[in-house]
Design a protein around this nucleic acid. Sequence first.
DNA 1: AAAATAAACGTCTATTTAACAATTATTTTT
DNA 2: AAAAATAATTGTTAAATAGACGTTTATTTT
Lengths: 236, 236
Amino acid sequence: MSKYPQQKRMLIAIDCIVFGFDGENLKLLLIQRAIEPEKNKWSLMGGFVEPDESIDDAANSILKKLTGLEGVYLEQMQAFGEVKRDPGERIVSIAYFALIDIHQYEQQISHEYHAEWFHMDQIPSLIFDHNQMVDTARKKLRYKAALHPILFELLPEKFTIPQLQALYEGIYDSVFDKRNFSRKILSTGLLIKQQEKDKLNSKKGAFYYKLDKGKYNENFHAFLNLIPNPDHLQLI
Amino acid sequence: MSKYPQQKRMLIAIDCIVFGFDGENLKLLLIQRAIEPEKNKWSLMGGFVEPDESIDDAANSILKKLTGLEGVYLEQMQAFGEVKRDPGERIVSIAYFALIDIHQYEQQISHEYHAEWFHMDQIPSLIFDHNQMVDTARKKLRYKAALHPILFELLPEKFTIPQLQALYEGIYDSVFDKRNFSRKILSTGLLIKQQEKDKLNSKKGAFYYKLDKGKYNENFHAFLNLIPNPDHLQLI
DNA sequence: AAAATAAACGTCTATTTAACAATTATTTTT
DNA sequence: AAAAATAATTGTTAAATAGACGTTTATTTT
């Protein structure tokens, strides 16, 4: 028997903002809703929190259902709780954002949900307040990536400096000086140079690097200065 | 009639981590629970989200009930959603943290809740996961205050540079060089020097300053470097 | 009048940042 | 096979910033 009998219970949802990087552009994973309400409309992947799972578990389970992935970068972002955000019934949604290596998992993304990757400049109109969630997530990603080496989560295990720079430039919609960029990135001490080169994207070829996982986990929270003139960019 | 009849509804709570600064130390406002369960135990001020209010509204209303204050700095922090966080029933709590000027409002804090200010080193054992919430909030405050001029929210309208430095030193449990500190703070251009001096705390007296609200709101999100060697401090 | 106190103002050096240039490895073209 | 083209890599320098450290000033107490 309940201790708070007079209080109203509500549905609690999880919505996942899933980012990927295809080597050229930052992409967002959306699904086409299979169920009413708003059937066939584009939306974030979501679901309800079940009685026997924590909200973090719920988020991971939703991400796995959509992408088949476990152990990906997933972070709680913000709860969205306007009264009428879902016109049908009061639902508070806790938004999580995920960063995945689009190449590694592209195939696995279930067609069950009619999932598709969208360029950030071509996000369609989404259900409920999902466009607002995406916008908040994009800002949070920019903010965090300016201080912490989080963008490695979007890259494959081996990557080149020019690829990494393309990612940063995509995220901030800016162009950075390649000499300063590589020096700054290398000075973090987070990268391990490989012997092998990527010869696909240039004649000379660019050396592959791997992330030093140990240092990455150790120093993740240190403030880095990864972006030139961060104050000039709109991070919030 | 519900669109999601098979889904389980849950209670959604708000808990407020309320920080204040008494001129010497950072303090946390706690209440003694008046109701079961856990009656008489110390806890954060909280309450349930009502059907007709957004989560932000709910947080503001709870803060007002406790302190009589409106328009104070209140920011959503994080949702806490472990299954058994409340042993009685499944409750997801959305934690907010508030920064208030302890002097201005000390009187108004309702005795109805047996509220008391606690030194951060003397936080008692709290109900449920509230100690964890406080810990998360303390880290978030440190993190944010290293980059943004958020700590002014804890000070009265007029304050001196030495007072401000004492606040920063309290938050980071460190000692900063006063010459570098004042130069850094003044270089933000956020402070307006007053004619008047505070003569209570020293023979010479220290000039009062006011916050330039316009610049504060404009530049709040710019990255500042308010803390020396932030990487050496534990911010997360 | 001298001493004590804490605020306010000042200097210098090391480090970091960012603007800018030259060289190298490889493939494609002539 | 030599020259041209391309993109990666490495290097230089000046300006800005951070941080260690000293001196002067305003006021009260002795």
